[in-house]
Design a binder for these strands. Sequence first.
DNA 1: ATAATTGCAAAGTCTTTGCAGTTTG
DNA 2: CAAACTGCAAAGACTTTGCAATTAT
Lengths: 160, 160
Amino acid sequence: MRDPKVEQVLDRLREGGGRLTRARRQIVEAMVAGDHRHLTAGDIVEIVRRRDPDFHESTVYRTLERLAELGVVRPVQLTPGATVFHLVEGPHLHHHLLCDRCGTVIEASDDLLDALAVEVGRTYGFALQSAAATLHGVCSACHEHHEHDHSHDHGAGHRH
Amino acid sequence: MRDPKVEQVLDRLREGGGRLTRARRQIVEAMVAGDHRHLTAGDIVEIVRRRDPDFHESTVYRTLERLAELGVVRPVQLTPGATVFHLVEGPHLHHHLLCDRCGTVIEASDDLLDALAVEVGRTYGFALQSAAATLHGVCSACHEHHEHDHSHDHGAGHRH
DNA sequence: ATAATTGCAAAGTCTTTGCAGTTTG
DNA sequence: CAAACTGCAAAGACTTTGCAATTAT
C-alpha cells in the first residue's frame, strides 16, 4: 500500500510546487490501480468516492489539469464527450488505436508515425506532433467475428 | 441562388426518404457557402438565424445526424468540446491535419495512411479505418515564425 | 502564518429528448 | 391524409468558476 508509482507521481507534484493532499493521493492511486486503462474524470470520481464520499468533481478536474501541466498525465479525446486521462510512464509516449466496435484502446509505439511524419512534412509542410494521434479502426478480436451480432461491450474499460 | 451543390445534397436527402424543408435547405446552404470550412453546430445555428430567427438548435443536430447517416456530411471531433461538420464531396475522403497553434485544418489525401495501415495491421492486428484520422501538429505558416509572440488566431475558421 | 487546495453550489457549453403543432409529399 | 419535421422547453453529460472554509508546508 505504498506503491512506488504513486509516490513517483506525487513527488513530481511536490517538485512542481504542488501540495500533497488526501484527494490528490487518491486520484493518483485510482489512476495507478487502473493502470493501462484510460479513465474519464467521472470514472475517477466514482472510484475515489467509494472511500471518500465527499470527494468532488471539481477537484478531479483541477488536479488532472495540474498533473497534465507537469506532464505526468495525458488527456486524450478518444470519443466525443469523453476526455480520458492516463499516466505518462517515463518518456513513453504512444499513439492510440481505438476500436470503434468495442472501445478497446491499444497503445501503439511512438515511432509508428515516423515515416508518415516525413511524408506529411514534405507534402503539406506540416510538422506532425509525435505521439498525439488517435487512429480509428477495428481491433483483431472484433474483426474476427464481425458477422455475428453479439452484445458489443462498447466503451470497454471505462464505462460504468 | 440555386447552387448545384446544394441541390445535390438535398437530392440525396430526398432519395433517402427525407423531406425538403426550409430549415434543411438553409443548413445545407450554410455548409456549402462555408465550403471547405469546418463548422460547428453552433456556427450553423448562428448563420441560419441571421435570416431565420426562429431557427432552433435541435433542428441542426437532427438534420446533421440525418445527413451524416446518408454519408453526405461528416462529423469530426477536432478538439474537445467541438464537433465540426463538413460536406463529403463525392467519394473524396480525407484526413485532417490540425494545427495546434492557429487551428487551421488541412485536408490530406485519403491514401496518406495506406502504408501505415499495412504496418498497423501487421503489428497490432488492427484494421485501420480509412480517412478517419485527425493528426495534430504545426502548420507551415506557424512553424516559420514560431519565435515571435503574435496574437494567435486560434480556432481560425470556425470561431465566432 | 500563508498560500494552496478543497467542497460546494452555481453556471456554462454542447447535445439530446419529448411533445404538440406544422408542413411535406 | 399520414408521416416527417419543426420549435420550444426541459433535461442531460461534461466541465469550469467563484468563494469561503480547510489544510499543507
